[in-house]
Amino acid sequence: MPNDLCPCGSGEPYEACCGRYIDGKALPPTAEALMRSRYTAYVRKNLTYLIDTDMQEVDVEATRAWMEEATFHKLEVLKTYRGKALDKKGRVEFKAWFTQDGKERVHHELSDFEKYKGRWYYSGGLAAE
C-alpha cells in the first residue's frame, strides 16, 4: 500500500523511504539508509534485496528461514559511524525487535558497510551486548 509508513521507523511513507531502494528506483545514499532498507527487506520478506546488497556470500536458506520464522516489530538506530554519501566505509549500531518461536527478542548489532562502485553494501556485522 503506497501510503503505509515505512517499517524502518523513519515516519515516512514506504514508497518515499526504503521502498524506492528496495524497488530499484534509487540507491541508498548512506550506510544508514542501506541498513534501514535491509531491515525493511526483512520485514517485507524480500530475500533478493538482501542478497543484492550483501558484499559477502549469503546463506540463502538460513536467511530465508529467519525471515519466515521471525516477525519484526521495531528498529532503533543507536549510532552511525561515518557512512555518509562521500565516505567509503561506515558502521551502524542498531537494535531490531522481533518475535520468534513465541518469544520477544532483540537483535543488537554493529553492522559494517562499504561503498563499491558508487553503491553501499553490507560487509559484515558483530553481535553487540
Rank of each mutant, 00 (worst) to 15 (best):
M1E: 11
M1T: 09
M1W: 10
D4H: 13
D4N: 12
D4Y: 11
L5S: 08
C8P: 05
G9D: 10
G9M: 03
S10W: 11
G11T: 06
G11A: 04
E12V: 09
P13I: 14
Y14Q: 02
E15G: 01
A16G: 06
G19S: 13
G19V: 01
I22W: 00
D23L: 01
D23G: 06
L27S: 05
P29S: 12
P29A: 13
P29R: 04
A31I: 01
A41M: 08
Y42T: 14
V43A: 08
R44L: 15
R44G: 10
N46V: 09
L47K: 07
Y49R: 05
I51P: 04
D54S: 15
M55C: 08
M55T: 08
Q56A: 13
E57W: 00
E57F: 07
E57C: 01
V58N: 10
V60R: 15
E61T: 15
E61Y: 12
T63A: 05
M67A: 06
E68V: 03
E68D: 15
E69R: 14
A70R: 02
A70I: 00
T71W: 00
L75E: 01
E76C: 01
V77A: 07
L78F: 04
L78S: 09
Y81C: 10
R82Q: 12
G83N: 07
A85P: 01
A85I: 09
L86K: 12
L86N: 11
K88I: 01
G90L: 07
E93M: 06
E93Y: 03
F94C: 06
F94T: 03
F94I: 06
A96C: 14
A96P: 14
F98A: 07
T99L: 06
G102H: 03
E104P: 03
R105I: 03
V106P: 07
V106R: 08
V106N: 02
V106H: 04
H107I: 03
H108K: 14
E109L: 12
E109D: 10
S111P: 12
D112E: 13
F113T: 02
E114K: 10
E114Q: 13
E114H: 04
K115Q: 13
K115T: 04
K115L: 04
K117Y: 08
G118F: 04
R119D: 08
W120C: 00
W120V: 00
Y122V: 04
G124Q: 11
G124S: 11
L126D: 14
A127D: 10
A128P: 03
A128T: 14
E129R: 10
